[in-house]
Amino acid sequence: MELLLDVNNLSITFKSKEKTVHAVRNVSFHVNKGEVLAIVGESGCGKSVTAKSIMRLLPEKTGRIMDGSIMFDGKEITTMNKKELVKYRGDRIGMVFQDPMSSLNPTMTVGDQIAEGLMIHKGYKKKKAREKAIELIRQVRIANPVHCCTKYPHQLSGGMRQRIVIAMALICEPDLLIADEPTTALDVTIQAEILNLLKELQEKMGMAIIIITHDLGVVAKFSDRVNVMYAGEIVERGTLREIFYHPQHPYTLGLLKSIPKLDHDFCEKLAVIEGSPPDLSILPKGCAFSERCSHAMDVCDQYHPEQFDQSSTHQVSCWLTDSRASRAPRVYSITH
């Protein structure tokens, strides 16, 4: 496996007059060529911020990468100048944003928006770029691509727009596609179509994908590995199997329990994780999850959990996995 993206000890803060929000804290992860990494966690845990930092798209004035490194294909992104950076954006790394309704330029035809990447990065002339754009519109399975090419975003449905956004991100055949909740704004049937499409394109083009979501159903569908984020940190990481069958962190377990199942008994309430995430402007002394954790021990409030290896691919930041935590309920297993 060849390493494509390597993020180490990344910390990002947002400064305003009143406070400093520690949105991402000490996050490390990697993506190999051609694999799919999922980042999951509830709203506000720093998923989008992490994703944007890879493209250096954080708001310049307020958002700062305080520490850490982001190596893409052996090059450091955090210290890159604008000129070099632009060569990566859209060419080697593509990005799909959450809301297809607002992420397309309203005054440009979708064909031009897709073709633009080729004109910028590959020096294509307009005509040739458009031909390739039409070809890609066909591949994202929109009927009558020649006609669609000349349309403006407001003339297309949400599902079609998201296909256009995906085509736009893939036009230069990037090595890495970052999809930030690509299906959240769409209705359920279209969600499935878009995911299938992404999967199919990934297999065809062989790019790596970071898929960001709070929907574990999406994760189960096509990721190889999973990072679970909570309050700006990665609390557990592992392969899809490890996360789904041997979750170690109480938060991961909570997430898994809150998935509705087909054989769900409707008299029984869906499990939810009580409480809400901590305020990221006040760093907790111990584990950020301890307040909401039903297994919390004294140590959890006082000391930040170390990272414990479960296997070479499976790491957890939770005191319960420490060998000294004998009282802890050891086995969380759920049948899926």
Partner: peptide
Amino acid sequence: DYIQTALAKGVTGYRFIIVHVLRN
């Protein structure tokens, strides 16, 4: 959001200001 999209595509300079910002 579409400005973020344009930046993520690597659009810069003249093209960014005229086509993506001013036009709108």
